[in-house]
């Protein structure tokens, strides 16, 4: 067996894992039931990643795990031992040729320019999802972007602006 935790009722039922979060390696002791989302928000004070439904129904908790977008609310932290995690707080550090002069990833700047959010609560998830979408490389047209961004609910209704922002960045990269 690779790893066995202690008894489920023991208060010290913690497992040592290693995660690289926004470029910084961290050695952490986590309970098996701690989700990546709760680890980020409650333990590491990275509250940029949002809890909207806690059940994979809204996408507000979207982060990048090894460059792939996933719902951190449905991800048990212990299972991602060794992974690289990028949250909204680390997006600027991802930008290819460094963040712009404003210290932002191009998608962050595009969201501001296109007013692709209102209340801002779904925004970190939308941003990480957008970067994940571009990494995947499947979505090209507006229709494809709309479909591929449908796992991120925006109750304020900024969808058309979100698509504009993503298109803008994708065209910028294509140039």
């Amino acid at each position: 067996m690779l790893i066995e935790s202690g008894s489920p009722v023991a208060a010290d039922n913690r497992i040592g894992i290693s995660l690289t979060i926004n470029g910084q390696q961290r050695e952490l002791q986590v309970a098996p039931w701690t989700t990546l989302l709760d680890l980020l928000r409650e333990r590491l004070d990275l509250t940029g990643t949002k809890k909207g439904c806690d059940h994979g129904q809204c996408g507000a908790c979207t982060v990048l795990v090894n460059g792939t977008r996933v719902n951190s609310c449905l991800t048990l932290a212990v299972m991602k031992d060794g992974a690289e995690i990028t949250t909204v707080e680390g997006l600027a550090g991802l930008a290819n040729d460094g963040a712009g002069s404003n210290g932002l990833h191009p998608i962050q700047a595009a969201f501001i320019e296109h007013d692709a959010f209102q209340c801002g609560y779904c925004t970190p998830g939308q941003l990480c999802s957008s970067v994940g979408l571009m990494n995947e490389g499947h979505a090209k047209s507006r229709d494809e972007i709309r479909e591929a961004m449908s796992g991120n609910i925006c109750r304020c209704g900024a969808y058309t602006n979100i698509v504009d922002a993503i298109e803008d960045v994708m065209q910028g990269e294509a140039r």
Partner: peptide, 19 residues
């Protein structure tokens, strides 16, 4: 979410055994 223990299996046989 209830409390549970956690086993990370390395092979199918280990997984079946842990279960």
């Amino acid at each position: 979410m209830n409390r549970f223990d956690y086993v990370r299996a390395g092979t199918v046989a280990e997984a079946v055994q842990a279960f």
